[in-house]
Design a protein around this nucleic acid. Structure first.
Lengths: 164, 164
DNA sequence: GACTGATATGTAAGTCGTTACATGTCAAAT
DNA sequence: ATTTGACATGTAACGACTTACATATCAGTC
């Protein structure tokens, strides 16, 4: 369900675009928040067309189809944005590793936390190079905060494990 | 892939258990980190049995089957814990809402962020009542940190929106 | 003129996860 | 005796997502 919201959001924010453009937009601006490849995007655009959320505005070279949002699409997007509550389901592989840390001996556990730390530090560095337009300002701040909090947890946890 | 890790982890940490027990364990101790219902757990245990990761130790009343971890299961769990790097794919509906905030007018945006804040405050309160055994200490700290960082972001964002 | 690489769009098979349906046991209370 | 509620296990259909495969255009260069 959220994939179509993301697509509607990009089309509303950046104007009409092709499936290819949207795939690139996902990679560039949205990928720290939601991910989808072209194999998911193309069929979804077709479904969204038959659901009346977008229309093919024009067909250009190389079979390129330019989609734009319909009033109904705008309505659906607005309704979701204003009405959606954070989903309760969480699936965090890092959280799972943290959960199971007590099954490891001290040095192994420290090494695991250290790697989690390194990976997140790398991601934080990558985020800073993210281009940002009208959209994405707030999401960037949220993402940075989330990653920083993992780094803090990692530092505290390593210190805690070293004391034991 | 991680579902079996979670199941192996619970079986290693808490000893042999039935599918039903594992389902309850998920609800009680693991649900802020990973989620799965019995409809996913029962078939997965069957697959894990045929893959040699767990065995049916005994069959009790009401067709209750007690699973325990095989040496191979222990090996697979250990390998994952020590070798797994955080996955790069992220899908956060809250992040998506944050990303698209600029599409809303000021007051709507503030209301959305306020609701995100409220939901996370509620989750934080729920986490404090989570029972914790040997496992889960570190995951709890991680979860609390994550949620706190959302609350901070929400406060800053609301202030920012109000200034505009 | 042939090759290469970026552009551009799609299908198919398989895995993972959700929702709805279906069944049966056992203990305790009424 | 029967009803209720917790215990206990499953299947089936569907939707979301991934990976691998397949194809074709166009611009630039060798």
């Amino acid at each position: 369900m959220s994939l179509r919201i993301a697509l509607l959001g990009l089309l509303c924010g950046k104007g009409p675009a092709s499936g290819y453009d949207l795939t690139k937009s996902f990679e560039r601006s949205l990928n720290h928040v939601w991910q989808a490849g072209h194999t998911q995007i193309y069929p979804e655009l077709v479904k969204m067309t038959s659901d009346g959320l977008v229309t093919v505005e024009s067909e250009g070279a190389r079979g390129r189809k330019i989609y734009s949002v319909t009033p109904e699409g705008r309505r659906v997007l607005h309704e979701w944005l204003v009405g959606h509550s954070p989903s309760l389901t969480v699936r965090s592989d890092t959280g799972l590793q943290a959960f199971l840390l007590p099954l490891l001996d001290r040095d192994e556990a420290i090494a695991v936390v250290q790697r989690i730390r390194d990976c997140h530090a790398e991601r934080l560095a990558a985020l800073d190079f993210q281009p940002r337009g009208v959209l994405g300002r707030y999401a960037l701040a949220l993402g940075v905060g989330q990653i920083r909090s993992v780094l803090e947890w990692a530092d505290e946890t390593i210190a805690d494990l070293q004391r034991s």
